[in-house]
């Protein structure tokens, strides 16, 4: 039984789709990584790579500054 248990290995969304640059205007993409309170989701939940997470965080902060995304919601 122990041998039959398989772990699902998550992979980084950005490396899977060959996204090398996260654009702050790409709201449909960015919104996938925000929780209902408009906070940035952790890498633990999304399995995004470290470099991509840094790029994503910067893109989200730029979008917030430009009023494309809220700083907080609900």
């Amino acid at each position: 039984m122990i041998g039959q248990v398989k772990k699902m290995i998550k992979q980084c969304f950005f490396s899977q789709n060959n996204i090398k640059y996260v654009d702050y205007k790409d709201l449909d993409l960015i919104k996938k990584f925000l929780n209902p309170h408009a906070r940035i989701m952790s890498r633990k939940k999304t399995a995004v790579g470290a470099r991509s997470q840094r790029q994503l965080a910067e893109a989200i902060k730029r979008a917030r500054f430009m009023g494309l995304l809220p700083y907080l919601s609900r």
């Binding site: 789709n17 790409d26 993409l29």
Partner: peptide, 19 residues
């Protein structure tokens, strides 16, 4: 009203679902 001036790359950076 507001502006953002950033360094970027020449290529199109908007993600389009190719899959």
């Amino acid at each position: 009203l507001r502006y953002l001036l950033i360094k970027t790359v020449r290529e199109n950076t908007l993600y389009t679902p190719k899959l």
